[in-house]
Write a protein that binds this DNA or RNA. Structure first.
Length: 311
DNA sequence: AATTGGTACAACCGCACCCCC
DNA sequence: GGGGGGTGCGGTTGTACCAAT
């Protein structure tokens, strides 16, 4: 189906009869008021989608309850609104969330918490529902794997000081593959958004044990991370009992305003940048998108352990 | 081939807020 | 001021899909 020049797949979610699957509810727990009102629940049908799209195309959106009635849809106004905003709206972007979007989500969530709609405003075409789902399925999953609360300071620190810089690094590497393997500093601008830089003043919030070894994070303008690859000259390796010993050398370059946090004792030569580097992202060959599938590695676990010990 | 466990996500719910009468 | 309808938001749930066993 073409709508406003955009192809719309009218189905109930990724070509499957997915969604919440309230068929059960339809069969077993039909509410009395629904019977009275003759209301439908559960996955939307092609016909319903078509009706809703057609009606909005001719009459516009809003006043959802009356819209539902006038369109002849046996749905609540809320249901129509949700279906339109999250699925049928022509500017809804679907598909994998890009690395840039992932970084932006992490950053914005660190600032605003579960303000999904507010976060969604900064990701054009993405819905709050989609972002919320991303957070729950990806981020919370990793928190669970690390056996820590997603709202804990430990997890937030790990995210801020490990995951986000890694994402920035991956974005830089993707944008500039040759520079990623060189020792010279490079800069990547991720996305222009009118929000403030997420990183706190590193002078008073960098744990001594912070195991980041490869990044300089710089505030450029608003949300522009610049990720600078560190020189491999800084590294030596020291593995003890399956865990790493870290040392940190935090500094701030006054002239460039760069936070240079990270000089670990990990030898990067054995695995490109750091021990977890090869593991935390994969390339979706089909869609040619990068997906930070498993950002966590032994560093993260050690990082959390250190945080726990420190508390 | 069948089963199982994990993942993704559409769609629901309850609640709070806003606005109009 | 307050009552009611409309709207928006965050949390939750159920199930199709998929990979591993």
């Amino acid at each position: 189906m073409d709508y406003h020049g955009q192809k719309i797949e009218v189905d109930s979610g990724r070509g499957r009869e997915g969604g919440r699957g309230d068929c059960k509810k339809n069969n077993q727990e039909i509410k009395e008021e629904d019977v009275v009102m003759d209301l439908r629940r559960g996955p939307w049908t092609v016909e319903e989608d078509f009706t809703l799209i057609n009606f909005i195309a001719h009459h516009g959106e809003g006043r959802w309850n009356s819209l539902a009635r006038c369109a002849g849809l046996k749905r609540t106004g809320k249901s129509c609104r949700l279906r339109w905003l999250n699925y049928l709206r022509p500017d809804v972007r679907r598909g994998n969330i890009t690395l840039e979007e992932q970084l932006l989500i992490l950053e914005l969530h660190s600032r605003w918490g579960n303000r999904w709609s507010k976060i969604a405003q900064h990701l054009p075409g993405r819905t709050d529902n989609e972002i919320k789902n991303y957070w729950r399925t990806r981020v919370q999953k990793h928190a669970k794997q690390l056996k820590c609360d997603v709202n804990s300071k430990q997890f937030k620190d790990t995210m801020k000081h490990l995951w986000m810089p890694r994402l920035a690094e991956r974005i830089e590497a993707a944008a500039n593959p040759t520079a990623a393997s060189s020792s010279g500093p490079t800069t990547t601008y991720i996305q222009n958004q009118e929000i403030q830089h997420p990183l706190p003043n590193m002078n008073h919030h960098v744990p001594e044990y912070l195991p980041i070894q490869l990044m300089n994070i710089e505030k450029t303008n608003n949300l522009n991370y610049s990720a600078t690859s560190a020189s491999s000259d800084n590294y030596s390796s020291d593995l003890t009992d399956g865990c790493y010993n870290f040392s940190i050398n935090q500094s701030v370059n006054q002239s460039t305003n760069q936070f240079c946090y990270g000089e670990s004792t990990i030898n990067p030569t054995s695995c490109n940048f750091h021990p977890g580097f090869q593991g935390f992202q994969e390339v979706d060959q089909q869609n040619n998108t990068q997906w930070m599938e498993n950002p966590w590695n032994i560093e993260d676990v050690c990082f959390l352990q250190q945080l726990n010990n420190d508390m």
